[in-house]
Design a binder for these strands. Structure first.
Lengths: 187, 187
DNA sequence: ATTATCTTTTGAGAAAAGTCAATTAATCAG
DNA sequence: CTGATTAATTGACTTTTCTCAAAAGATAAT
């Protein structure tokens, strides 16, 4: 069976045993549009890999829904803060369309680390990638106008603009819906 | 010899061998106020632990110096983005006063990981802590007014207000020097 | 001490983005 | 298909914070 997205592509040094052991712990899940993979208030127990579709992470503040990140096919996804700290998550993970994911439990992952040193390293790389993305986002937000943040998103992640709503994009880019709407009108 | 800050306190599960092996690779360095531990444009090759003093990370933009983080005694420190990615750093690490650090080379750390699985785990925990701090900073910045960001810093990290200049604090809190000055006047 | 330099404070006006309100467009359920 | 609900756009006005400029205060060197 051919897969479009192979999570191991990013980890060419993984041993075959490690890959097999990891795959044995994977659950494959299908979620409809709007379905939640993880909910705020609960400890996030899974690391996901998206094989089809897309998802976003968001939290709620003053009854508003604030998007933290978008994830597309071929990307790993979790509520990292909770997954790491084992504390209840403030994030929800939601499918933005019909989406297929592979997921592994936190406990299974830790167990695998005991036997497969190289899996712990691969996990470290995922964590590092998460860190870099976050740091770049922080710097990126800090120096750009609302308009430039939108133009950057268009340039670097155009698929997101196609798949996400104005409200989701606006909160992700840290601006009001109205501001985003005006920016789009004047491009 | 008594140490005020022991970096292993945070890692009670580390084996004695791992601690010894790690310590054997540590260099102890002393830096005067204003001295640079790492410079922008170069790959950051060290993970630091501050035993005395304090440091900050900053970068330069439009000839302005923007503080990214402050670190005090008992904390680990590096230009994480560069340390992880092995690309030139955009950050400088600067001692804010006479400061003593222990540091270990990136390569030494990787070598230690081969023999000491538990050290790789400890490093993962440092990385996770870095991630959490960054994520909290991102959320924290997003929802608070300039005034509340300052009040939060006063509450949670008062030592920083004592040791850093207005300019450093202002850029860290993402506001102009003038705004910070006005906030301080009206407390 | 005294000048020079750098930092901090204060004031006034400008700009970016936000809020509230009204209208138009899109989506969804029956 | 069609009314109902939700999402997006547009306009008017407000707010926050920034920038520029000048004054006051601190620090350092001679």
């Amino acid at each position: 069976m051919k897969k479009n997205f192979d999570m191991f592509d990013q980890f060419p040094d993984l041993s075959e045993e490690a890959k097999r052991a990891f795959e044995a712990e994977l659950d494959v899940i299908s979620v409809d549009k709007g379905g939640l993979l993880e909910q705020e208030g609960q400890v996030c127990n899974h690391l996901y890999f998206i094989t089809e579709g897309s998802a976003r992470s968001f939290y709620t503040r003053d009854n508003k829904d604030i998007t933290v990140s978008f994830s597309l096919e071929g990307e790993f996804l979790t509520a990292m803060h909770s997954f790491i700290s084992r504390k209840p998550s403030y994030e929800n993970l939601e499918a933005m369309e019909k989406t297929k994911v592979g997921r592994i439990k936190y406990e299974s992952l830790l167990k695998l680390f005991e036997k497969h040193h190289d899996l712990e390293r691969a996990y470290r790389l995922i964590l590092e990638q998460y860190y870099i993305t976050l740091e770049e986002q922080l710097i990126f937000t800090k120096f750009k106008s609302a308009r430039d943040r939108y133009l950057d998103l268009m340039e670097y992640r155009p698929k997101i603009i196609q798949r996400a709503s104005v409200g989701q994009i606006a909160s992700y880019l840290d601006m009001s819906i109205e501001t985003l709407s005006r920016i789009r009108a004047r491009i």
